[in-house]
Design a protein around this nucleic acid. Structure first.
Lengths: 334, 334
DNA sequence: GTGAAAGCGCTAACAG
DNA sequence: CTGTTAGCGCTTTCAC
């Protein structure tokens, strides 16, 4: 049957308190007894019951990761890198996809609170910051990643989305484009990228096209739909900046369906630089996010709060980087 | 502070035993007290402590999902669909990526056992079935998905990989190809697909090429490397069947680097039909796995074992389906 | 129908 | 240094 601390204590000829102490490296124990206990521990294949110690207020070594959609490569890569770091630090992740639905966000948070996760890493784009504040009021460690910085102090890691938008647009402008469309979703990060886009346009005395619409969802279909609208406009753009790689692919598909060549007749720049950016036709010029670093940093922040009770909050802003591939070209002056 | 069962009992004017009974719908409780307790429960926002009830042998409503790599679209899609069903059934998933490393598999399993997960869903391709047997001996529910059926009874859902390999190869043969290479990894599912491939070849009195090598890893790089080797052979294939979409993309990249046109000069068929199969150039003709059904079915199997203590094991074999896109063509007789 | 009491496996004072 | 003991929050007999 399940071997408990009592079994270990008995066969080692000590009390359970002693066993507990050597397991947790607390109190003073003589080398002799420590070794004896450790031996028995091995021999009996004793593994402490996490539930029992959690009941006593100890950590569960489990963290909740709330993201919008695990099937989106950006988030699956982020989850993977976060998990990697978690594993190094002896933590496990309960990963939950919300589909950007506030109900699911709330449900998951309250569920995981019951399960006594040690903290939450929030990547979901939900705008309802009250949930985050509530968590913090309850003294539950929270860190946000790949999203906006709330108005109140919370550990966070994200990239400079404004800068990313600025980079993408400037790059297109330098290529000679003057009519640049943008495809984005109505979430914070995308709105920042739009800001960057507009700033770059303004800095170059260019106007944004008179058409614009938000994508309903973050997927290829929506990207395609919107690109179609733009392309069928009588003032069609020569370049499109799409705020993530999935949307970008949709734009390319739309171009193909209209017999428009990418990059010869239409330049397209994406955002994220996930694996899929390398496999499309043409491969995507895109703004790269350091997903691996983001995952690692946010995990480290989390563990800092949990294990070292770090109270001072910090924000880590990573810098995006333009990755040149073949979906963009100088404007065709023909 | 944290509201416990005692708080509810006190303000409802009943004993904790009564509260416990109404929460769990056990024993006989009068409508009156039941409603009173339920009211207080709402009012106080009482959420039972999962740890405490787990300590008493109740379920944790948490399942371990062990997969090779969350960043591989096949697995992230599988994880997503599994999670979706889990959510419907009020379960959470702790997802762990093993990178096909036996050490990590063992580590995760023992970690999650300590955390008292209610069961394990195993998708990792690890060959060490002893771990699975051990789990079952300890009466921990186990279900395997997207991998081989072990020699002992265990709940499982998978597709007919042999059939998939047969389909892919037959399709190529019907297109007129006689020299068909195969790219695969040395894991069970891939070996089955190879069997199907060989059978189809044999049934059509065709020989497999004299070259063959396993891919070291499941990624684009490895697929490309091997395709290069095949293509530079003096008996180069006119078609390649690659055992997953990532490998397939590698093959296409290799062809491009050799100036070989796909599908005109080289037909390529993949396996999985993940999202990426639709975005490559050309879009992939590939053997589709019903990933959504697999995720749902394995979750249902799992919950059947946990909640209804179903002892009889079943195997669900799903049928793959060829999805035609543009990476294949009739052999060029020119 | 309802409640008192005995744990589940472990940690944390507090004695010794 | 080591052991005794009192819980953590909940479930479950077993009386009443």
């Amino acid at each position: 049957m399940k071997v408990t601390i009592y079994d270990v204590a008995k066969t080692a000829g000590v009390s359970i308190a002693t066993v507990s102490k050597v397991i947790n490296n607390t109190g003073k124990i003589s080398e002799k007894t420590r070794n004896k206990v450790l031996d028995v521990t091995k021999k009996l294949e004793y593994y402490p019951n996490v539930m029992a110690s959690a009941l006593m207020g100890k950590k569960t070594k489990t963290i909740g990761l709330i993201i919008p959609d695990l099937a989106n490569p950006f988030f699956s890569e982020l989850a993977r890198h976060t998990e990697n770091r978690a594993n190094e630090l002896e933590y496990n992740l309960i990963t939950c996809s919300t589909d950007y639905l506030p109900e699911r966000e709330s449900k998951y948070i309250s569920l995981l609170k019951q399960k006594k996760v040690d903290g939450f890493i929030l990547a979901s784009g939900f705008e309802d910051l009250k949930k985050v504040e509530d968590l913090m009021k309850e003294d539950i460690p929270v860190a946000v990643v790949a999203r906006d910085f709330p108005m109140f102090p919370v550990n966070a890691v994200a990239i400079d989305d404004f800068m990313g938008g600025y980079q993408a647009t400037s790059y297109l402008i330098n290529l000679g484009h003057k009519n640049i469309g943008i495809i984005a979703r109505d979430v914070w990060s995308n709105r920042e990228r739009i800001r960057g886009y507009k700033q770059a346009l303004e800095d170059n005395n260019l106007d944004a096209p008179n058409y614009f619409e938000y994508a309903e969802e973050t997927n290829i279909i929506c990207g395609k739909k919107i690109a179609h609208n733009y392309l069928n406009n009588n003032n069609a753009p020569t370049a499109i900046f799409a705020c993530n790689d999935l949307l970008t692919i949709g734009a390319i598909k739309a171009a193909k369906e209209n017999g428009i060549l990418v990059p010869e007749q239409l330049s397209v720049v994406g955002f994220d630089n996930t694996m899929i950016a390398t496999i499309t036709d043409p491969p995507l010029t895109t703004i790269g996010q350091p997903i691996d670093i983001m995952g690692r940093e946010v995990m480290d922040l989390m563990v800092g709060m949990i294990e070292h009770n770090k109270q001072d909050k910090i924000r880590i802003t990573l810098v995006p980087e333009l990755v040149e591939r073949n979906s963009t070209s100088k404007i065709d002056l023909g």
